[in-house]
């Protein structure tokens, strides 16, 4: 009887130990799973922070580019017109009564042109806010400025684009990408035509920019580390869950297509 009692007591103790070890392992498992959850949450947080930083950077770059254009316009255009006005007015002589109306008319025309230019400039300054009117409007304003130089034949096709609500962050990053690509074309491509398409499909928004410039060897550029601009384009596109496809070859022009989920 004593032996049986001892056996059963041992059995009960062992069973109890097993029944305590089981929840212990469960706790360890939950803790491990929770750690992974934290890692995932941290990654998500870091990604959000990077996105916010990149958004801020894009906003600042857009602002910087706008101010640069204002400075160029003030110096090259309005400044020249006002200088010409000053010269015209200083040439007015009381002794030359016959020439006065003509010179005053010229000065008036110059002042009117200056006013017109200033109005356009104010639109450029306001351009930063243009994103609030949609990406297509912002691109159109940017191209208006580029058209002034008459150096390019520019075609812009906004196809089915409808501005979506709460997508301003995506739009500002896409707009900044557009500016960056246009800057690259102006600086390096020696192109004469630029085709821009902004196409909205049910789930995506595609911005396609094609030029007929000198193009480049894509693989070589990336290998030689000259592709910093390209890397930035890819990085920013991926930040808004999009993709950037660059196609180029020497003397064949360049096409950059950015596809983002939208709206």
């Amino acid at each position: 009887m004593q032996v049986q009692t001892e056996n059963i007591a041992t059995l009960i103790i062992l069973t109890t130990i097993v029944f305590l070890i089981a929840p212990l392992f469960l706790l360890i498992f939950i803790n491990q799973y929770n750690k992974r959850k934290r890692k995932h949450a941290d990654e998500k947080k870091a990604l959000h922070k990077t996105f916010q930083n990149e958004l801020l950077k894009s906003q600042m770059e857009v602002q910087e580019q706008t101010l640069q254009r204002v400075a160029i316009d003030l110096h090259d255009n309005i400044g020249q017109l006002l200088s010409l006005t000053a010269i015209t007015l200083s040439a007015v002589s009381i002794n030359d009564q016959a020439g006065i109306p003509e010179k005053i008319n010229s000065a008036e025309m110059l002042v009117k042109r200056s006013i017109k230019e200033l109005r356009q400039l104010s639109r450029i300054i306001y351009g930063e806010e243009l994103i609030s009117n949609g990406l297509a409007d912002a691109i159109r304003f940017e191209l208006e400025w580029l058209n002034k130089s008459a150096a390019y034949t520019i075609v812009f096709n906004p196809l089915n684009y409808v501005q979506a609500e709460n997508e301003a962050a995506k739009e500002i990053i896409l707009f900044r990408l557009f500016q960056e690509i246009i800057n690259n074309i102006i600086k390096h491509a020696t192109a004469t035509t630029i085709d821009i398409t902004l196409q909205q499909s049910p789930e995506n928004l595609t911005l396609s920019i094609t030029d007929n410039g000198k193009g480049f060897d894509l693989n070589a550029a990336l290998k030689e580390g000259k592709g910093m601009g390209l890397k930035t384009i890819h990085k920013r596109a991926s930040l808004i869950n999009g993709t950037a496809v660059v196609s180029s070859a020497p003397d064949k022009g360049t096409q950059i297509e950015i596809i983002i989920p939208y709206p």
């Binding site: 009692t5 059963i8 007591a9 009960i12 069973t15 109890t16 029944f19 305590l20 089981a22 929840p23």
Partner: peptide
């Protein structure tokens, strides 16, 4: 509650066996 399962299962035994060890 999980740890007390064995004691609950053997409750009848505990009540029947009045030895000191049990």
């Amino acid at each position: 509650y999980f740890g007390s399962t064995a004691c609950n299962v053997f409750y009848d035994y505990f009540m029947g066996d009045r030895t000191q060890l049990s």
